[in-house]
Amino acid sequence: MRGLRGLKPREIIRNWKERNKSRIREWKLMYEAFKRSPLAVIGAILSVSFIILGIIGPYITPYDPCAINFETMIQEKLQPPSLQHLFGTDEFGRDMFSRVLAGARTSLQVAIAVMVIAVPLGLILGLVAGYYGGVIDEIIMRITDIFLAFPGLVLAIAFSVVLGAGIESAMIAISLVWWPGYVRVVRGQTLSVKENLYIEAAKAIGVSTRKIMLRHILPNIITPIIVLATLDFGSVILVAAALSFIGLGAQPPIPEWGRLVADGRKYFPQRWWYTFFPGVAIFFSVLGWNLLGDGLRDVLDPRYRRKLEFEKEIKV
């Protein structure tokens, strides 16, 4: 069998490996660093399961998470955990296990929306402020400071009240609160990276400003941003749950973990399962992102990888 440019597939792979030798070595070291940290592995498993549940959760629920069956409602309502209903049932006789599973999607949606809106916004503003400096920097940073002068959840509450309850307004409100943190980090990193000689060289040969920012500065500052975004993925889930808990954010019948905890309080502690399981779900999904973020800090740290490499060489 002959493939591309008359080469055998095996040769293509070998050529590719040859060309990307150093990159592959770095990947191997990253994997090695990752494997060495059991907490990071647990975090990755939890985070990946959370994403998978967020995607397929609503399709694999044993019962319909939202529909109320009025015929069986009376005998099915507020049943304790059993084999039929692992997490018990709510006041409408709905299966709590199904509702908690389906709730993963709501949290995932909010977290992704915030990451898609707030992180790029913070990145761009931070790069611009750090790179240009002067008046632009001054304006961007003063606005950032004002947003950071509010405790996060409190400002998110004010925005979501104004935008009206609902999952979309929760997404916008949390994003509005989240971008300033990134501006500050990105600006600080940009300030230190832009003094490097290779930036000067790029300017000298006439590389466009946009390209300098995106191709020469961004890749060199992305590591702390990735770590921060991973940790923030968990924090966003927490804030979204807190908003729903006080009645903002996702509205019924959409299952949302914070809302479920709040609804269950009416029947607490006699019907403890109603409040208990949604809270456990929040805790473990947030914990997953925190463990992963904590682990990524080591995995993505080049100094740590050099240390691993050194240890390996000694062994050989």
Partner: peptide, 22 residues
Amino acid sequence: ALIGVSMPVFWLAIMLQWVFYY
């Protein structure tokens, strides 16, 4: 530390009430 930052504070509050009050 990791448990603390991952804990939904409203849920922790309810669980503490469960243990120490109920």
